[in-house]
Design a protein around this nucleic acid. Structure first.
Length: 705
DNA sequence: GATGCGCATGTGTAGACAGCATGTC
DNA sequence: CTACACATGCGCATC
């Protein structure tokens, strides 16, 4: 880590930049560059030097990327900015828009957007998620060959077991395709990583707001906070989190509390709220107007009135957005959240409390492990609002003084873990090989080995998996052997659909040998693949799940305990989606299966993709009867309707509820809508009816939705 | 016989990427 | 690599 000597600032005026660029910076209020930005420029950012910028959260890395891209693009180049989350893509896209005054065209693509990918060729800068870019590469989008500058944001995601392998693959291709700028949280092996990237490391431990970190632990009948600067505080109360939260609010700050489960987050929010008075705000009425599901409103209403909320992925997107924006505008004083808020969009608070440093491990039953230091830094880094707070404070709650010392050493005073390859698993590596062959194939085995050797994997791990991957992919007919390795039409389709080869293989295996099954059988099969959503199954509901099972499945129940748990999850996902396409009301599904609105959304979204993929996998395999069933299922999953409503939901603005209303009143098709305008208006109301009729006319001509 | 307590036992557990449809973010 | 917090139920002492 660089010492204080390198903490220099430069003014924008000093920079060798186009005057128009400087003008835009000044318009934004940027008159000087912070130490991270200054160092990046010193190391050659504007001269096309490859860099790895590793610095804390909120240290101004985005501006580094902007300057790098602008200087590249104004010289006639084309750049892609890659991020790990859709929400982040949106955030970066909004920021980059300000460069359009220079004539720089900025576009965005991710699963959120409808995309004719070829359209992206008209932009100078394209913001994308890693998976979307991977998909574009596999499909060989022609415009990608013009891209010669890649910004890899949050590359430390490489350490994520599930998504890291994709980022590793993107990094290799970026290295091969041109210049790159990698942005990362601070990592301990930055020299090794920079070396891997062929980049110069820019490593500065600088934050815009000072950060005090501490441990919070019981001492006698009080709680003691020991900060890393040596200062000590005591707070009184029964619960350490509540006590410290109240102390921070009294000092006029906002508090962000991280808990390791939804239940804990909700319970903490309620506990804090008990000590706060009701205040005037418009949040509860906003909840009502926004048509939020009952359960969410009832849970949050009494808390919001006291300036408190909980936040996790079980909540609907709407509710989460409402809470985030209320916190930003200071209408909320406290949010108790799961890690959603640590990784996602920027939402700082003066005080951050990390309530747990253990987390349940889904893969090993009954095992809880300590969270990585990197994640601690991610959370504590949210403390301190630039421009508002003089300094931020982050405390981590521990059991006793002895633990406090250990935790202080491990989390506060130490470096985050090393960045390591996660390609060393069949699930990740086989998919990686399929992707490489899709984007760069056909390849000889030597060429493939060369490609893989450019990853972060060690030689031994690579050798262990390469032959296995080639054998498996060949045996299962994804790849054909010849002078070179190339994809079969099946392999090509699977790569395009972006499903894991194990997903495709399971679909292939089961449907090749099965007769037509019931809808539940198809859904449960898809829910058994590695790409499927996972839901938790309570002991009490096992029996009920079996009761609902009224037809034969294609995937048999396993003996093994862990696998049985996965089986129950797949059965539950299948049943949820079956209810969904049978038009059970959302509220009822949430109640029956004890899931949140956000969970239902995620399940439907993923199963939409999987039914679509299953349909196309069957098509390419010549399983046309299964394909038909899956295609119909896909259409129904998309909108959550039975078959008879499929025509009506083609109309924009008509979803499952309105379609049912119209149908039951005898308006049963797009044509019926157009033929009975008065009836439609009487069912849906004059204004809505009018627009539905208009949209129906467009639907008829084959346009949109 | 109702109430309250300590203890043993039971229970559940974070998040979020990908295809495609329209007109072109 | 095999944890936690919290909820529930029980036996027991107490009034």
């Amino acid at each position: 880590m660089k010492g204080l000597s390198s903490l220099k600032w430069t003014t924008v005026d000093e920079l060798e930049l186009d005057e128009k660029v400087k003008g835009i910076l000044k318009e934004r209020g940027v008159i000087r560059l912070n130490p991270v930005q200054t160092e990046a420029i010193k190391k050659g950012l504007l001269k096309g030097k490859r860099l790895l910028v590793a610095s804390p959260t909120a240290s101004g890395k985005t501006l580094v990327a902007e300057l790098g891209m602008i200087s590249h693009v104004t010289n006639g180049g084309k750049a892609v900015y890659v991020v790990p989350l859709r929400a982040l893509a949106q955030e970066k896209y909004d920021t980059l828009k300000s460069w359009e005054k220079l004539g720089v065209k900025v576009g965005i693509t991710s699963g959120d957007y409808d995309s004719d990918d070829e359209w992206l060729r008209y932009y100078d800068i394209v913001v994308s998620t890693y998976e979307k870019l991977d998909s574009l590469w596999r499909r060989r989008a022609t415009w990608l060959s013009q891209v010669n500058y890649y910004v890899l944001d949050e590359v430390h995601y490489i350490n994520d077991g599930e998504r890291g392998p994709v980022i590793e693959g993107i990094t290799i291709r970026s290295k091969r395709a041109g210049n790159l700028l990698a942005l990362s949280a601070t990592v301990s092996n930055y020299v090794e990583i920079a070396d891997w990237l062929g980049a110069e490391p820019v490593v500065i431990d600088w934050r815009p707001v000072k950060l005090r970190e501490g441990v919070l632990f019981p001492e006698g009948r009080r709680f003691r906070v020991q900060f890393d600067d040596g200062s000590i505080e005591t707070v009184k109360g029964v619960d350490p989190i509540v006590a410290f939260t109240l102390r921070s609010i009294e000092a006029g700050g906002q508090v962000l509390i991280f808990r390791n489960s939804r239940r804990n987050a909700e319970a903490t929010a309620r506990r804090v709220a008990e000590f706060l008075d009701e205040t005037e705000n418009d949040l509860t009425s906003a909840l009502n107007e926004e048509d939020v599901v009952n359960e969410e409103r009832e849970g949050l209403e009494p808390l919001l009135r006291r300036g408190v909320a909980y936040h996790h992925a079980g909540l609907s997107k709407r509710t989460r957005d409402l809470i985030e924006s209320a916190f930003r505008t200071r209408r909320l004083k406290v949010i108790a959240a799961t890690p959603t808020l640590a990784a996602g969009v920027n939402l700082p608070a003066r005080t951050v409390i990390i309530g747990d440093y253990h987390r349940y491990n889904r893969k090993v039953l009954g095992f809880q492990e300590e969270i990585p230091v990197m994640e601690y830094k991610q959370m504590s880094g949210r403390a301190g609002r630039p421009g508002f707070d003089d300094s931020g404070e982050a405390v981590i709650v521990v059991r006793n003084a002895r633990e406090a010392e250990r935790v202080m050493k491990k989390y506060v005073l130490s470096q985050p873990e090393e960045l390591k390859s996660r390609l060393g698993s069949e699930l990740a590596f086989f998919s990686f090989v399929l992707g490489v062959l899709a984007s760069d194939g056909p390849l000889t085995e030597m060429e493939l080995r060369k490609f893989a050797s450019e990853s972060l994997m060690t030689r031994e791990v690579l050798e262990r998996y390469l032959d296995r991957a080639i054998n498996w992919l060949t045996e299962r007919e994804f790849v054909k052997l010849g002078r070179k390795l190339s994809l079969t039409s099946f392999g090509r389709r699977v790569a395009d659909l972006y499903v894991n080869p194990f997903t495709a293989d399971l679909i292939k295996e089961k449907l090749t040998k099965s007769e037509l099954g019931c809808n539940l059988a198809y859904l449960q099969l898809l829910a058994s693949t590695p790409d499927a959503p996972v839901v938790s199954v309570g002991r009490y509901e096992e029996d009920r799940l079996y009761d609902e099972l009224d037809c034969e499945l294609m995937v048999e129940e396993p003996e093994d305990e862990t696998e049985r748990y996965e089986f129950l999850s797949s059965l539950k996902v299948g049943l949820i989606v079956r209810d969904w396409i049978n038009e059970e009301p959302e509220e009822k599904i949430l109640e029956t299966y004890n899931v949140g609105s956000g969970d239902l959304n995620a399940v439907v979204e993923t199963m939409d993709w999987l039914t679509y993929s299953g349909h196309h996998v069957c098509n390419v395999l010549g399983l046309s009867e299964h394909a038909k069933r899956l295609s119909l299922l896909n259409a129904r999953v998309k909108d959550g309707v039975s078959e008879e409503l499929l025509d009506l939901v083609k109309i924009r603005g008509v979803g499952r509820k309105r379609a049912r209303l119209l149908y039951d009143s005898g308006v049963r098709s797009v044509l019926d809508v157009l033929a009975n305008p008065e009836k439609v208006k009487s069912i849906l109301g004059a204004r809505l009816g009018e627009s539905v009729i208009e949209q129906a006319a467009r639907a008829l001509t084959g346009l949109h939705k």
